[in-house]
Simulated assay, not measured.
Amino acid sequence: MLQQISIFTANQKGALSKITAILEKNNINIYTMLATDSAEFGIVRLITDDAEKSEKALKDAGYQCRLDCIIAVDMASDKPGTLNHILADLNDANVMIRYLYISFDRQTGTPIAVFNTNDSETETFLRGKGYKLLDTL
């Protein structure tokens, strides 16, 4: 299972570049990044080449962050309906998705569905349905 760093940060100008500067300084490569906001704070979700090192560097810089286990499904196709089939299978299995975003395989360009769920059996279920889950991006 992949690990993702979730960072809580002020919703202000330059907040993202401060985070990326810390990662650059520590020679950490970002594979995927999602930033969401509210009125006062934002949540930045990152998958990097070294989750533990990323978390330590960010905490040392004063950020409140945590590691989360996420699931990454190689969608194998960019055809309409591909994501819907994955979501329909998960819905049929009563799996609740907390959040989801799409990334891309850097070499093939195929989409990757990245999501978080509270159901510990989701990986086993998806593999049983024939989906390819990724351990690295």
Rank of each mutant, 00 (worst) to 15 (best):
N94E: 15
L134S: 10
T136W: 02
I71P: 02
I19T: 01
A51P: 00
F41V: 04
N84V: 12
L90F: 11
F104K: 13
K53Q: 12
Q12K: 15
Y31V: 06
T124C: 03
V95F: 12
A72S: 08
I71L: 13
I97C: 06
S120D: 14
T82K: 09
G81N: 11
L83I: 09
K25E: 15
E24A: 08
S17N: 11
T110H: 15
N26V: 00
N116S: 14
L2K: 10
D37W: 08
D92M: 11
D89I: 07
E121H: 14
D60L: 01
L100W: 07
K25N: 14
F8E: 04
I71V: 13
F41K: 05
A76L: 13
K25V: 06
L16E: 09
D89F: 04
N118A: 15
V44N: 01
A113T: 06
L2H: 10
L34M: 12
G128W: 04
G14Y: 08
I19N: 00
M96Y: 14
A15K: 00
L23Y: 05
T122K: 04
A35T: 08
R106I: 14
A39C: 10
I22S: 00
D74R: 09
N84E: 14
T9D: 01
M75K: 01
K18R: 12
K56P: 00
Q64H: 03
A57L: 04
A61K: 05
P80W: 07
G128P: 07
S77T: 14
A72E: 01
E55L: 13
Y101F: 15
V44A: 00
S6V: 09
I43H: 04
I71C: 03
N11F: 02
H85V: 08
I28V: 10
S54V: 00
E52V: 04
E40G: 11
T136E: 10
L87E: 10
D105R: 13
P111W: 04
H85M: 11
N27F: 13
L67Y: 07
N27R: 15
D135I: 09
T136K: 12
I43S: 05
C69W: 08
M96F: 14
I43M: 09
I86W: 02
L58E: 00
D89L: 09
A88M: 13
E55W: 03
M33Y: 02
I5H: 00
C69T: 13
T108C: 13
K79W: 02
L90W: 06
E52Y: 05
V73F: 13
I43D: 01
L83H: 03
K132T: 15
K56R: 06
K53N: 08
M33A: 12
K79G: 01
E121C: 12
I28Y: 02
A61L: 06
Q3D: 11
G109T: 15
L137P: 11
D135S: 13
I70D: 01
L83M: 10
I102E: 06
I5M: 03
T48Y: 01
N29R: 10
F41M: 05
L23P: 00
R45T: 01
Q107V: 15
R127W: 06
D78A: 09
I112S: 02
D37I: 09
Q12E: 15
L90A: 11
K53F: 05
T136S: 11
N116D: 07
Y131L: 03
R106N: 14
G109K: 15
A39R: 08
D92H: 10
I102S: 06
S77I: 10
G62M: 05
S54G: 04
T32K: 03
